[in-house]
Design a protein around this nucleic acid. Structure first.
Length: 686
DNA sequence: CTTAGGG
DNA sequence: CCCTAAG
């Protein structure tokens, strides 16, 4: 079941043009939107990824035998590895599920864990309404997709990922990434508020792959729930991820809420149609009030969950929330102590803006610095030491960005697509996002630091006690933004929301959480650790992904940000700018040329019902084609009439049988006449 | 939400 | 396909 659900999920984020044509169109419009009906529309929030985890996992796996799940995960991953295997098969293949289960965790257990976690989550929370919200947001926003790259590149990326160094000058430099990244200090809010159980959101949705080097781990967490047509079960994002066994999450509420945003295939007919119809509206709203909505979303959601809101309403809210999360691209960062010994090992090799850490160095670091013991216990001590070190050298602050959030991606991919194609698609999307114009925002204690000329010292960042309050955000680069709206909005939206976003994404803890077997116990520690990470630097964890693994990784180091070198080619394909900027706000639907059969059905329906009854036509002939709205049908009819009137030479695209065109003209003439007649009759009566 | 019509 | 006005 879990696997099946996979498909349901969509990739929240930038849409990858299925075709050049679509791309052009999208570019022209500056907006993208892809929806999938018969194909699986998955919305995944990508949390990036990174490969770095792989290395860590490798090391970790050996150490942490206590996690039965890992093997499963491995097995699972391997399954996915088969690039030639159709996605559909992959997902629906019972055998796959079984295998995965056999490896250590039965599917049932898997589910139970998720449920349990979820349940626990809510219970502990004490805020019945709040927990779900957090979960959903985190899930939707947070998703980890690993295995975006090949094993090799993967590793490299991971290594370099997110290393951010802040010099005394105040100049921030991403050693590892070309991308602008923000360090996300998500967890802080939660901690402060205390409403959310430790490690709440992120853990649930994100996980790490303990896959070995060979296997390219792919973590895909859905942002929310995806419903797959034919399946009533709601899947939680966690189910997608391998680590989810440890960190299952997502509340039912989420599923419902998201139904509107995602593919509501499972929903009832009426509901589906409603949601679909509302889709545009939602998008519209998002576009115009994205930021505002985003800022308010969290709160709204919270109350909504408690209250008795209409499903649709909730779904919309969720959409907003989701959008928000997408827009906010918080990065988690880790502060590293600048220590000579560490520095050496950590030192990265830069190449084309990407920083790589030599494997040796990494391993060394990992082995030396971090205890192999999985679990929080090791963290505190190591951190303390590091902290001390840090203090000794307060003149330099090293920050490591462990992960960054990728804007929502919409990926449409046929069920028959191969895993390899799926990977490529995701890769392209991620690459595009990364390449998109982004800038870094610095948030200190919830406040945006706008003065770029201030030194870290002046700002207070130089002091470790301040560091815990330091956060980074990714913001659309207005200069590159194609859309005025985005550019204009970006400045305030992200900033204003900073605090909330942070709260919502305890990404690092989550990741760590995954790995840890005893989630409940670990959570508290993890969160603490994550917080501390911001303040303190851990040399061990920082440079080496390996190191990050269980102990440290749990805390914060886990989530690495991959800054790929990879997607260069892909970039050409994708309209990066638009996507990175505003794609989330309004994504154009994918173009779906009408097939002859569809035209036939349309013509037939119109012949029967006449023009002007597009809703009926839709229900009559395209009820199952969810991607065809009545507006689409109306438009198609319009184009058909036009096509029928022009000479065959002037017609473009897939030729429509002349016979059909003739019928179009006939029907159009007939119903036009009827309309006129009726109108005249009305006039006469009046 | 539906229609209708321009873009 | 999108967007919007209008009902």
């Amino acid at each position: 079941m879990v696997l099946q659900k996979w498909l349901d999920y969509g990739f929240n984020g930038y849409q990858v043009p299925a075709t050049p044509r679509a791309t052009r169109s999208a570019r022209r419009r500056g907006t993208f939107r892809k929806r999938q009906e018969d194909k699986q529309l998955c919305t995944f929030d990508l949390l990036a990824t990174v490969a770095g985890n792989l290395l860590q996992e490798k090391d970790t796996s050996a150490t942490s035998s206590n996690q039965p799940t890992e093997k499963d995960q491995y097995g699972f991953v391997k399954e996915c590895e088969d690039a030639n295997k159709p996605l559909k098969d992959e997902l629906f293949d019972e055998g796959s599920c079984d295998r995965r289960s056999s490896s250590g965790l039965s599917s049932r257990e898997y589910d139970q864990n998720c449920s349990l976690k979820e349940f626990t989550h809510t219970e502990n929370d004490g805020h019945s309404g709040f927990a779900p919200m957090v979960t959903s947001s985190s899930c939707s926003e947070r998703f980890v997709a690993e295995k975006l790259m090949n094993g090799k590149s993967h590793i490299e990326t991971e290594n370099c990922a997110g290393k951010l160094e802040l010099g005394s000058s105040g100049f921030a430099e991403f050693s590892g990434c070309k991308l602008d990244g923000g360090i996300d200090k998500v967890t802080d809010e939660q901690h402060k508020i205390g409403r959310v159980p430790n490690g709440t959101g992120s853990e649930m949705c994100s996980f790490e792959d303990p896959s070995d080097e060979k296997s390219t781990p792919v973590l895909i967490s859905s942002g929310g729930n995806a419903k797959l047509s034919g399946f009533n079960d709601n899947i939680h994002c966690s189910s997608l991820s391998r680590g989810c066994d440890n960190v299952p999450v997502v509340s039912r509420d989420d599923d419902e809420n998201f139904s509107g945003c995602t593919h509501p295939s499972t929903t009832t007919k009426s509901f589906t149609s409603i949601t679909r119809m509302g889709d545009r509206r939602i998008r519209k709203i998002l576009a115009s009030k994205y930021w505002k909505a985003a800022s308010e979303t969290k709160v709204d959601t919270f109350y909504n969950n408690n209250g008795e809101l209409k499903p649709i309403y909730q779904s919309r809210k969720n959409c907003f929330k989701r959008q928000k999360s997408q827009m906010n691209i918080p990065l988690k960062k880790r502060k590293l102590i600048d220590r000579s010994s560490v520095s050496d090992s950590d030192r990265c090799i830069r190449s084309n803006g990407t920083c790589f850490f030599p494997e040796r160095g990494m391993h060394q670091v990992a082995s030396g610095s971090s205890p192999r013991i999985r679990g929080a216990p090791g963290l505190p001590s190591s951190e303390a030491r590091q902290h001390t070190t840090l203090q000794s050298r307060d003149s330099h602050v090293k920050l490591r960005i462990k992960s960054f959030r990728v804007p929502e991606l919409f990926i449409e991919i046929p069920e028959t697509a191969t895993i390899g194609s799926l990977k490529r698609t995701v890769m392209e999307a991620v690459t595009a996002i990364l390449r998109g114009g982004l800038r870094v925002g610095v948030v200190l204690r919830g406040k945006k630091v706008r003065d770029d000329n201030k030194t870290l010292l002046q700002t207070g960042i130089s002091h470790d006690n301040q560091l815990d309050a330091l956060g980074f955000t990714l913001e659309p680069n207005s200069s590159q933004s194609l859309h005025p709206i985005c550019a204009a909005d970006s400045p305030r939206g992200p900033h204003a929301e900073m605090p909330k976003p942070l709260t919502r994404y305890p990404s690092s803890p989550a990741v760590a959480h995954q790995r840890t077997q005893d989630t409940s116990d670990m959570l508290p520690e993890l969160q603490v650790a994550s917080l501390r990470n911001l303040v303190e630097s851990d040399r061990d964890s920082a440079p080496s992904p390996t190191n990050t693994s269980p102990e440290k990784g749990t805390t914060d180091s886990k989530a690495l940000v991959a800054v790929p070198e990879m997607g260069k080619e892909a970039l050409a394909v994708l309209p990066v700018h638009q996507k990175s900027k505003c794609s989330e706000i309004a994504q154009r639907r994918i173009r779906r040329p009408f097939s002859v059969a569809e035209v036939e059905a349309l013509v037939q329906a119109v012949e029967k019902l006449g023009t002007g009854r597009w809703r009926d036509v839709k229900l009559r002939a395209f009820d199952n084609a969810k991607y065809r709205t009545y507006v689409d049908l109306k438009d198609k009819w319009k184009t058909l009439v036009h096509t029928a009137r022009i000479s065959p030479q002037q017609r473009r695209g897939k030729p429509v049988p002349q016979q059909l065109l003739d019928r179009v003209l006939t029907a159009h003439a007939y119903w036009s006449q009827q309309q006129t007649k009726q109108h005249s009759d009305t006039c006469l009566l009046l």
